[in-house]
Computed example of a mutant assay.
Amino acid sequence: MPSNNSSSKGPVVPDWVKPELFEQTLKDTVKNYKKILKFKVSPGTRPGDNYVTIMLRVEVDVELTDNTTKSISYMLKTARKSAEYGETFGNSEFNIFDTERDMFTNVVQEFKDMYKKAGLEVEFGAKCYKLDIKEDHIILEDLKAKGFRPTERLAGLNKEHTLSVLKKLAQWHAASATRVAVKGPYPEHLNKGLFTEEGKALLKGLSEGAIKYILKSYETIEGHEVYYEAVKNMKEHIMDHIWQVGQVDPNEFNVLNHNDCWLSNIMFQYDEQNQLLDTYLVDYQLYQNKRI
């Protein structure tokens, strides 16, 4: 019998994450799929990673129609069941899971198709699927199986990795601008992202919740006295600055921005000799069409 296990450390696996829920996804993605033999769920992030959602790795051993077995893994992103998450996201009409799924299944595919038509094979992220359940979620292919891994964020990036990230962003921005020229404006929820009246409360919660931790972190930096008070005084009107930055100027060159491009949202692919092959962006939740 398949079992639903989770690590003693890390997030609690939601009750609805059961083997039978993955049957259709397995049928759609695994050639000659027959049945599930083993089912395991474990934390999908490293200790210290800071994400607003829960990331889980789903590992499945399946039997194929020729009686051989195969191991498959997925990354499952779900909502946190906490008061803080509810206060920040629960009252907003902006659903980060719907937005991210739309990005993966529609926008990313449009960009890939445009590059393919131009004679280039360009990938931007993992393949995305959907489970037949009402719970907020995103299910993605596990990039680890393709040799992808995150970098050590505290160490930063060397020149090679930095150039790879910039190249991927340039490819994304070019495709996003071309897509508007060819197909017209993006849907309203992508044009404005969180920068709507409904999203104001969410942005306020995110920014005001973060500022106290930013100030605490600054206290550990030598020479922070020079700018500490300025940042502290900005707390009262930081939302005004964020709102101003997020407004689209039709007279500017606008592209579809990631809005959360930092080291924890970038994956690097390596070959067996540890040579860098490609770079993918992850977390497609906060995209917005605006100037670079």
Rank of each mutant, 00 (worst) to 15 (best):
K204R: 08
E63W: 00
K117C: 09
N32L: 12
E123P: 03
E229M: 14
D132T: 12
Y33I: 11
S71F: 07
Q288T: 14
L131K: 06
K27C: 12
K235G: 04
G184E: 01
E272W: 03
N95L: 07
E84H: 02
L206C: 01
N274F: 11
I211A: 01
S92R: 07
T68V: 08
T53F: 03
P185I: 12
E59F: 09
V248A: 05
N233L: 10
K31E: 15
A230F: 13
E23R: 10
E87F: 13
T178N: 04
L206T: 04
P47C: 09
T279M: 00
L163P: 03
Y280H: 13
A175V: 08
R149P: 03
R291I: 03
N233Y: 07
S8Y: 08
E63H: 04
S42C: 04
D271A: 07
D61Q: 09
W243R: 06
L256T: 02
V30E: 06
R46T: 15
D28R: 12
Y186H: 03
F124V: 12
L131Q: 01
T45A: 10
V180M: 05
D260L: 01
V13T: 15
E222W: 07
Y186L: 00
V60R: 00
D49W: 09
G48P: 00
E252L: 15
V282R: 00
D240K: 09
P185D: 05
G199H: 02
E219K: 15
I54F: 12
G86M: 12
R80M: 13
L203P: 02
M75L: 15
A170G: 06
S207P: 01
Y74A: 04
M267D: 04
S92L: 08
K35G: 07
K116V: 12
L157S: 00
A174G: 14
F195A: 00
H173R: 12
L140I: 11
P14V: 13
K212W: 09
V52R: 04
T53H: 03
D113Y: 10
M1Y: 11
L56M: 13
V122Y: 02
C128G: 07
Q285I: 11
M114P: 08
G125S: 14
S164A: 15
T178S: 13
L157Q: 05
I72Y: 00
K200D: 04
K144F: 10
K112S: 12
V13W: 04
K290M: 09
S82R: 05
A210C: 05
S8G: 10
L166R: 06
L157T: 05
M239W: 03
E197Q: 06
F89L: 12
M75N: 00
K34L: 11
C261P: 07
E272D: 14
E59Q: 11
K27E: 10
A155Y: 08
A155I: 02
E93N: 06
M75C: 09
T78G: 00
E59M: 10
Y213D: 10
A79H: 01
I54Q: 01
V248I: 14
E84L: 10
E121V: 15
Y129H: 15
S264Q: 14
K27H: 01
R57S: 11
T53C: 14
S7Y: 10
F268I: 06
A174M: 05
G199R: 09
G193R: 07
E141I: 02
S92P: 00
K127W: 06
E160T: 08
T88K: 07
Y284S: 10
S92A: 14
W172C: 03
K134I: 08
A181N: 13
V17I: 15
I36E: 00
K183Y: 13
K216P: 02
A175L: 13
G193K: 07
K144P: 05
